[in-house]
């Protein structure tokens, strides 16, 4: 076992507790990959010096021969994953979404997507979940960059269990995939044993006044808001657009025909992301429906602890409820 795998330190250390107890959602990444290996799939995993941030240290400890530490060389990691995939193995490589979606964008385009290789890219700590680490570590453009790359599937799980379900389902998906996942502290909404269907939106509530279409972290608070408002006699729908690309066009059109208003919510710039994708569907189909795009409004987010940022940008329950009520009057 390499020196690196003996870290971090003891189970009592701050680092260990921080990463293994406070980010339980990311445990699901290793869980999913371990279950795939157990099922006999030719899985390899790799990371760029972040195995303790993304929890792949658990996979590495279990299957050291199937884990590659790439050091801080993200571009090399993505191109190498493409080389690995030519041999019939299925590589899953992970790093912060801010680096994966921007720094390695061209490697993803040329070596992974254009070559149509079964590489699975996992961008974690996405959106503004890195809080006061700052803009370098915020990923509010990655859906935009990845969405413009042909033949690349984009999945934005709302929680760890949904990530695990999508990871398990990914072995049967025939295209390269970019997973955009949070920091592992999202409240659980899903069952990791549930079937994940690529390209199929998940409807949590139906509403005639407004339908929220969200992906990633905002899905959970949106579901809570809808529950509360609907119990009070309002009619608010929620759709989890976990597969951002290819987008579930039918789900968008159905929501547009049912609801007076649509609202997209994403932990991303409102340009280029989920809101843009939904707007494109409406425009393509000639649906003249008011769409409120909620997210980061084409700016660099402030720095603060993540929960403070979610409150400031109205991506938490309170903020979402306020925006929904303002929209529906």
């Amino acid at each position: 076992m390499s020196h690196a795998l003996q870290r971090p330190q003891s189970p009592n250390s701050w680092h260990y507790r921080e990463l293994n107890q406070k980010n339980p959602g990311l445990d699901h990444l290793s869980n999913g990959l371990i279950s795939l290996v157990e099922a006999g799939h030719p899985i390899m995993a790799g990371s760029a010096d972040l195995q303790y941030s993304n929890g792949l240290n658990r996979f590495a400890a279990r299957y050291p021969d199937r884990y590659i530490g790439f050091g801080i060389s993200e571009q090399n990691m993505v191109s190498a994953a493409a080389g690995i995939a030519t041999t019939g193995m299925m590589p899953y490589v992970a790093t912060f979404a801010s680096f994966l979606g921007l720094l390695t964008c061209e490697q993803i385009r040329m070596d992974v997507a254009y070559c149509a290789l079964p590489v699975r890219l996992i961008g974690h700590h996405t959106g503004i979940s890195m809080g006061f680490y700052g803009t370098s570590h915020h990923a509010t453009e990655d859906i935009g960059t990845m969405r413009s790359i042909a033949d690349l599937t984009i999945v934005s799980p709302a929680d760890g269990p949904q990530l695990e379900a999508a990871i398990r389902a990914s072995v049967d998906h025939d295209r390269p995939i970019y997973f955009r996942t949070g920091r592992g502290r999202e409240p659980d909404l899903y069952d990791p044993k549930a079937d994940f269907v690529f390209g199929k939106a998940i409807e949590h509530a139906r509403g005639e006044e407004l339908t929220i279409i969200a992906c990633g972290l905002p899905v959970h608070p949106a579901v809570q808001v809808a529950k509360r408002l609907n119990a009070a006699g309002r009619s608010v729908g929620v759709i989890d657009m976990a597969t951002v690309k290819p987008i579930d066009r039918d789900a968008v059109l159905e929501a547009a025909s049912r609801s007076k208003l649509l609202m997209t919510i994403e932990e991303h710039n409102i340009l280029g992301g989920l809101g843009a994708a939904v707007a494109e569907v409406l425009a393509d189909e000639g649906v003249g429906k008011r769409l409120i795009r909620h997210g980061i409004r084409d700016e660099y987010a402030l720095i603060a602890p993540p929960t403070h940022l979610y409150a400031h940008y109205k991506l938490d329950e309170k903020g979402i409820e306020e925006l929904v009520l303002k929209a529906i009057g």
Binding site: A80, A81, T87, Q107, D111, C115
Partner: peptide, 19 residues
């Protein structure tokens, strides 16, 4: 392996050798 964008190929080859 496809190429055209200079600088990727040694990484692609590294992946093949690892696998």
């Amino acid at each position: 392996f496809s190429s055209g964008s200079i600088g990727h190929a040694l990484s692609n080859g590294l992946g093949m050798a690892l696998a």
